[in-house]
Simulated scan of single mutants.
Amino acid sequence: MTVRELTRELVSIPSHDDETAAGDVIEAWLRRETDAAVTRDMAGNVIARKGTGDRTLALVGHHDVVEPAASQVETASETPTGDFEYVVEQRDGRLYGRGAADMKGAVAAAMLAFRDSDPSPAGELVFASFVGEEVGGVGAQHAIEHGFSPDYAIVGEGSTGYSSPGVTDVAVAHKGRRGSTITARGTAAHASEVDAGENAIYRAADAVDLVRTLETPAIDVAGETLSGSLAVTEIEGGSAMNVIPDRCTLTVDERTVPGERAALERVETLEGVTWTVEQDLPPMRCTDEAFAEAVRKAADAAQSGTPALVTKPHATDAGWLAQAGCECVIYGPSEPGEAHTDTESVSLAVLERCRETYRRVAASWL
């Protein structure tokens, strides 16, 4: 089976609200095509292992996708089984379909590389495809909580076209995302008696002013400056035009970098203001230069362009793995602007490049 055939099969399987069917196919393929120890955990993650050495390298992906556009779905009446499927089309050297870029193509490339690799007695090779990456990394967190702890990992999220068009680079760091809510509380009163109440919107405005003064950390990595950011993105408060509001909420989107965070907790020094973290996706940075360079050399040997060490702006499951102590890099076929689009696609040549790079790293690093 070629990477094109396997990608096409995986992309056709709906997995935006239930990853079970895609996980079934991945698990069955691994059991049929390899002699690895294959497991399926309670979350639905599919994990396969071979080799018994002390050094562990994992090829990591996810088989959930975001909701497809109507144009990316075939209706039940159009499919042989009577069940709906995702539309998959091939043209101009690319496969089009929901999940082709993010990231079933990389999963297929990793499956084939895993099958074709024979780790030395010094190492263990692991394949893992997680569920729930698109909703905060719930699959990765479950796996880590239940003992998934490779020493090194290549996460197949997109790294193509960062240094120059068509080149698949090696991302050694990415930002995280912390989403939080600031709640300002006051005392309601009739608007004709302003001094009888405490205006929660005014207190929220004070919080906004404070947020705008906060410094966001930045780090230098791979010759780039990776900078954090803060933005107040939503506001809700008040009940009527003639009532002093007793409650106002703000949401804040924060992009984090490895190391320090913006001091958002300072808003709680304001009277009547509390701060609650709703989501905290960790950033990632590879600190093992030898591993990053080994992946870059393998990538260089697998393509005509010259790959670079780069950074990514988006959070991935690599953040959870790095937080647990795994040295991670990102290497995958998706290009900037492809994921989550109505015309999502992936280059077949780059999929083959990724398969070969994963195989080369497994052979050299283990």
Rank of each mutant, 00 (worst) to 15 (best):
V273T: 12
R360N: 07
T7H: 04
R296D: 10
D102H: 01
C326Q: 10
G166Y: 05
V232E: 10
D280K: 02
G93D: 15
E198H: 01
A58V: 07
A100G: 06
H190P: 08
P14T: 02
A263C: 07
D17M: 03
V170C: 14
G61R: 08
V46M: 05
W365Q: 12
A322C: 01
D102I: 00
S71F: 03
R285F: 01
T81M: 12
P245Q: 14
L59F: 12
V273M: 14
M103C: 01
I330H: 05
E89F: 08
V257C: 10
A69P: 00
A290S: 09
V350I: 12
G179N: 12
G305P: 15
P313L: 10
P282E: 01
G93M: 10
R261S: 02
G105V: 07
T274C: 09
A322I: 00
G99M: 06
A43M: 09
P150E: 08
V208Q: 00
D102E: 04
G176E: 09
T160S: 09
R91P: 04
A37Y: 00
L281R: 05
S239D: 11
P80H: 06
V131K: 11
V46E: 06
A143L: 02
L281N: 01
A58D: 08
V170T: 13
T256V: 15
V277M: 09
A22I: 03
S129H: 09
P80E: 10
A362E: 07
L57W: 03
I26K: 07
S347N: 11
A184D: 13
I235Y: 13
R55E: 09
W29K: 01
A122E: 14
E289A: 10
A196Q: 05
E89M: 14
I201D: 02
V135C: 00
A294Y: 07
D253A: 04
E265F: 15
